[in-house]
Design a protein around this nucleic acid. Structure first.
Lengths: 205, 205
DNA sequence: GAACGTATCTGACATCCCGTCACTAAATCT
DNA sequence: AGATTTAGTGACGGGATGTCAGATACGTTC
């Protein structure tokens, strides 16, 4: 069974949005302007999305899976904590680099709509919880100093979000390795300060 | 000489805006709605501000001074690095707690206007530079490990911004001490890891 | 292959908010 | 009081939104 006509149209609109946001900020996105780049009329948009913010929510869903995947290395790894974190952060930076404009667009759009703001907040918050759990585990193992895991997890995740969107959100992207080593430095120093070799020496400059 | 009538009107509008944003998000702010809470008509708004984003820029300027003040302890202190940083972060958290809703409103408004976005970006960026300079100084003194100061400064500042706005931006504010000890933990671990007493023991839980 | 029913799409409309402009009203000066 | 500058407003045009009734394309049945 081939994809229905509706599915094709929907995808075409989503694609047009992605392309648009590749080069222009969310504030310049209008339903009329977007649909003009497709072969459909403006009202067609409303057949598939409630409004521009619902549209952004859909775009976020598409990116979400990739990001959650990347986090697994560290989170579901009972073993090598430092190595797992290294790997998770590396793939996180990769994915963010890849989808930078979409992530920035969603972050930009979020404050404009109560529902999308909640969705974005939940998206970030979901990381807070899993990171917090992993921190607690490493604290029990004596790898990590004893502090309240949740607020620190929140702080580190906000750092990632702000840094990655700032670095990769707009056209001219910052060099990946610089961004990676900065956030890696902060994560490792905070969570595994006893592992001096990891936190001080082994980070590429 | 008493303040001119214009100055009074302007202040009245600014106050009305502050009051509004105390309880409602920026997305609900309209020129008509705002002016309806004053004794002036809608066009009067445009006598004093270009648009809502220019209005937010003015609001930011009012808060800016307080924040820059707070940063001085650490930045202009050649002596006790850890103590200075502690003090700077403490007052930063205080100020952010005080002006939380305004800061969130500006951050929310920024992506909607190219000019305000630049202003906000510059505001954050200005901290990147001074923090970076202080880091370089402490690296030279052997207090801080050797890494690229600017990206790490950026990361830490983005963490502050994201964390503080999330914690203090909306009505029910998070407890100050929890937020403070979380970001303090991260800053100290990253910048002064050799000062074990400072980064591990002395932080209140 | 004509008639029918459903899925897909669109023109036209009402609404909301914005920013401006010609004009009025109030304050200040002589 | 009359003239001049300062402060404020009613009314307009424009752009984007979201909806709805009607049109068009498509597959199915006879």
């Amino acid at each position: 069974m081939p994809p229905s006509k509706a599915a094709i149209t929907r995808s075409a609109i989503l694609d047009a949005g992605s392309v648009f946001l590749e080069t222009r900020p969310f504030r310049d996105l209008t339903v009329g302007g977007l649909m003009a780049t497709t072969e459909y009329s403006r009202p067609t948009f409303y057949l598939y999305f409630n409004d521009l913010h619902g549209f952004m929510e859909t775009l976020l869903d598409e990116v979400k899976v990739g990001i959650v995947e990347g986090a697994r290395a560290w989170l579901s790894n009972e073993g090598d904590a430092v190595g797992g974190l290294r790997q998770s952060l590396t793939t996180l930076v990769d994915v963010a680099h890849q989808h930078g404009p979409i992530l920035k667009a969603v972050a930009d759009a979020a404050p404009g709509d109560a529902r999308l703001e909640r969705v974005w907040e939940m998206f970030l918050g979901s990381f807070d919880e899993v990171v917090s759990a992993r921190i607690a585990q490493d604290q029990a193992a004596g790898l990590t100093p004893d502090f309240e895991p949740l607020p620190v997890a929140r702080a580190l995740n906000r750092m990632d979000a702000g840094m990655l969107i700032q670095a990769f959100g707009s056209g001219e992207k910052a060099p990946k390795d610089v961004v990676l080593s900065a956030i890696m430095r902060v994560w490792l120093s905070t969570l595994y300060p006893f592992d001096a070799a990891a936190s001080i020496e082994q980070i590429g400059r």
